[in-house]
Design a protein around this nucleic acid. Structure first.
Length: 299
DNA sequence: TGCCAGGGAGTGT
DNA sequence: ACACTCCATGGC
């Protein structure tokens, strides 16, 4: 059968009509071409904490209980040793391959300031992670740097996650709910341990239904999440944006506050608010790696 | 309203 | 060596 090559959705970038395609090659899935996609930026920028770059140049990580091994060369993305069913049911969605980033970037770049941020990391994307993992990870992220967050998440998964091929899945709420703060000592999460437990208990006993939250109006969803002890507006917005694909949610951390004060004293352009979370991803990375002089040198 | 703990690693001086 | 910071929050 000749059904080994499929056409992906329409992708408009650089004012050209383009498609991405995927095909099986031995045990790999090759996605080519992918535009507006930089695997290193996406996996290093601090939105996901379970990906590691191997000696072989291949990124490895676990999401939805599956081991992912991914590499990129130019416009070619390779999912190594990956069944087609995993690509279709997990990775295609996880890496948001079906979002038209070309059109998104065109909208963002109508604003001169955002154009500068987008140009800095043109391949940035917002991943579509699991709701519970995102919530939990961003609770752990409080007042921490990315390296340490990765360590905390690693130890949480190794200690309590289900063993899967290649490592450990992220522990389910029901696995964490009956634990005490002392049980979480190996994670070395400090004051965050009690926050994780409150979240796990609320989710596992049904007081908080993340699936329902993901469909609520933003304000209601935020209120539901902040009912968790230790979850404020910032973490709630992270869970919504990274774990529930609510791209209108705009997590404001210290860097975003800085870049907003320096570049957007009047707020984001109103027309971009429905996609503020995606804009945030470019701005966050830009803010962290550039000085934020009010009037940068003309380009 | 402002301020600070809490754990621990990274980064700058 | 030592200070400061880190994708914050709750409690005072």
């Amino acid at each position: 059968m000749k059904n080994r090559k499929f056409r992906g959705i329409l992708d408009i970038g650089d004012y050209e009509m383009r498609y991405y395609e995927y095909k099986q090659s031995r045990s790999d899935i090759i996605v080519e071409p992918v535009y507006h996609f930089c695997l290193d930026d996406i996996l290093r920028c601090g939105q996901a904490f379970r990906w590691r770059m191997g000696e072989d140049g291949i990124w490895s990580g676990i999401a939805f209980g599956r081991l992912g091994r991914v590499s990129q060369r130019g416009d070619r993305l390779v999912f190594h040793n990956t069944p087609l069913s995993d690509f279709l049911s997990v990775w295609r969605r996880y890496f948001d391959l079906d979002r038209d980033y070309g059109a998104l970037k065109a909208r963002l770049c109508e604003d001169r300031r955002l154009a500068r941020a987008v140009a800095y990391t043109p391949g940035m994307r917002v991943l579509r992670q699991e709701p519970w993992e995102a919530l939990c990870s961003f609770i752990l992220s409080q007042n921490n740097n990315i390296k340490r967050i990765c360590g905390l998440v690693d130890r949480l998964c190794e200690s309590f996650g289900q063993p899967v091929d290649g490592g450990f899945a992220f522990p389910e709420p029901g696995r964490l709910a009956p634990l005490d703060v002392e049980d979480l000592a190996p994670v070395r999460a400090g004051f965050r341990a009690k926050y994780i437990l409150d979240a796990a208990r609320r989710v596992s006993d049904g007081r908080l239904d993340l699936d329902a939250v993901s469909r609520m109006p933003a304000e209601e969803a935020r209120a539901a999440l902040t009912s968790i002890h230790g979850v404020g507006a910032k973490v709630a917005d992270c869970a919504l944006l990274y774990g529930m694909n609510r791209v209108e949610c705009f997590p404001q951390d210290v860097w975003i506050k800085r870049v907003m004060a320096a570049m957007f004293p009047g707020g984001l352009p109103a027309g971009l608010l429905p996609e503020a979370g995606l804009a945030q991803q470019y701005l966050f990375h830009y803010a962290r790696h550039n000085s934020l002089d009010p009037e940068p040198a003309a380009v």
